[in-house]
Computed example of a mutant assay.
Amino acid sequence: MKKVKYVPLKDAPTNFEGYVLVTGFMGFGYVGYLATEYLVNKLNMRKVGFFITKYLPDQVSYSERNGLELPFELYLDEKNKLLVLLNRWIPHEVERFRYADYVVRWSIKHGIVKVYGLGGLDKSFKEEPSETLRWIKTSAYEGPLPDAKPMPEGLKVVGPLAHLLASSEIRGLPMLALLPFCESSRQDPRASATGIVELAKLLNIQVDVSDLMKRAELIEKEIEKLKKVIEMSSGGRESHYM
Rank of each mutant, 00 (worst) to 15 (best):
M1I: 13
K5R: 15
K10N: 12
G18D: 06
Y19F: 14
F28I: 08
F28K: 07
Y30W: 15
E37A: 12
L39S: 05
V40Y: 03
N44W: 00
R46A: 03
G49E: 12
F50A: 08
F51Y: 08
K54L: 02
V60M: 08
S61M: 05
S61E: 08
S61V: 12
Y62Q: 06
N66E: 10
L70Q: 10
F72Y: 13
L74D: 09
L74V: 10
L76A: 11
L76I: 05
L82H: 00
N87D: 04
W89A: 15
E95L: 00
F97D: 14
R98S: 15
Y99V: 07
A100Y: 05
D101A: 08
D101K: 11
Y102H: 14
W106M: 12
I108S: 03
I108H: 08
K114S: 13
L118P: 00
L118H: 03
G119K: 02
G119R: 02
L121W: 03
L121M: 15
D122M: 10
D122H: 12
P129A: 08
S130K: 13
L133R: 06
L133K: 13
W135A: 00
I136A: 01
I136S: 04
T138A: 06
A140V: 05
G143E: 14
L145R: 02
P146T: 02
M151N: 03
M151Y: 12
M151G: 03
G154R: 09
L155V: 14
V157F: 06
V158T: 14
E169V: 01
E169C: 03
R171P: 09
G172F: 02
M175D: 01
L178N: 10
F181D: 15
C182A: 11
E183H: 10
S184G: 13
S184T: 10
S185R: 14
S192V: 02
S192H: 11
T194W: 12
G195T: 07
A200M: 01
L202C: 07
L203S: 01
Q206C: 09
V207N: 06
S210I: 06
R215G: 00
A216F: 05
L218D: 04
I219S: 06
E222C: 02
E222Q: 04
V229C: 10
I230S: 08
S233T: 13
S234C: 14
S234H: 14
G235W: 06
E238C: 07
E238S: 13
